[in-house]
């Protein structure tokens, strides 16, 4: 019998058990290692159970967008390659990769994580473009929350490269100047299987979820982005429960992020 089927999962959960023995509201232990890729302007490796993600930041001087001539550009991208999990395929980004990137991106943007005006070098001509790439090495679920933690950690780790007199970036030399970070928006995903709500789902749990919601919180506890996923529907009471669960979790995740050096 397929151990991962939804029915079996619900039976297990009804007994109060998860496959990896965790409590329903327990996030796997978060291990953060900063600066793992010296070639990048900033980087971090985050490990949670069997999910392991490297995020890296690359900076570049570029022309600003026409509608925001005095603002720098922040872009998040997720590379889901068949290395971390055979279900991923080569080729154009899958919808899963796009959703991960966009939800992380939206949390950072709407949570005003970056003072983008401070990334402007010359109005209308030259601004810093900040590229964050999330690359899973091991995938055992919840790439979104864990990828976002890695992205924030990599942004915190970033130092500007030097700029020559003629305006060219000298990537070989890093300054001591960090990015103008104002906030650290952190997402927490809650999934629903049967009548059960789980934090930090593994891949097996993700495969049989009915619905999920990702809530992104700022440091002050305010929400800055929400995304529902899954084919199932949710009552208002259920959403209330889920947001409370997420809020409780984000506080301990933030402690883990603050503790890591």
């Amino acid at each position: 019998m397929n151990n991962d089927s939804q029915e079996n999962m619900i039976r297990l959960l009804s007994e109060g058990l998860r496959q990896d023995q965790r409590a329903f509201d327990k996030f796997r232990d978060i291990e953060i290692e900063y600066g793992v890729v010296e070639m990048a302007e900033g980087s971090a490796k985050v490990k949670c159970g069997n999910t392991e993600v490297i995020a890296g930041v690359k900076l570049k001087l570029d022309k600003p967008y026409g509608d925001t001539p005095d603002q720098g550009i922040l872009m998040v991208n997720t590379e889901l390659t068949p290395m971390s999990n055979p279900r991923f395929e080569f080729g154009p980004p899958s919808i899963e990769s796009i959703e991960t990137s966009r939800v992380v991106d939206r949390g950072l943007r709407e949570g005003h994580a970056m003072d983008v005006k401070k990334l402007c070098v010359e109005k209308g001509e030259k601004v810093w473009m900040v590229n964050v790439d999330i690359c899973p090495v091991n995938d055992d679920g919840n790439l979104l929350d864990i990828g976002a933690i890695a992205a924030i950690a990599a942004l915190k780790n970033t130092k500007f490269p030097e700029v020559d007199k003629d305006g060219k970036v000298n990537y070989k030399k890093k300054t001591k100047v960090s990015l103008p970070l104002l906030e650290e928006p952190l997402p927490v995903t809650v999934i629903k299987i049967g009548d059960h709500f789980l934090i930090d789902p593994t891949e097996n749990e993700t495969n049989v979820l009915e619905s999920r919601i990702t809530f992104t919180f700022r440091k002050d506890g305010k929400l800055c982005s929400v995304q529902k996923g899954g084919d199932g529907s949710l009552t208002v009471d259920e959403i209330t429960k889920m947001v409370e669960l997420a809020k409780k979790t984000v506080e301990s995740n933030r402690k883990a992020l603050d503790k890591a050096k």
Binding site: V37, M39, A40, S43, I54, G56, V57, K58, K60, N77, E79, T81, P82, M83, F90, N131, D133, C135, Y171, K172
Partner: peptide, 14 residues
């Protein structure tokens, strides 16, 4: 065989 560089892996631009 597939050889891939992570976007941030090299010196210089992404």
């Amino acid at each position: 065989y597939s050889y891939i560089m992570m976007p941030f892996s090299g010196m210089g631009e992404r």
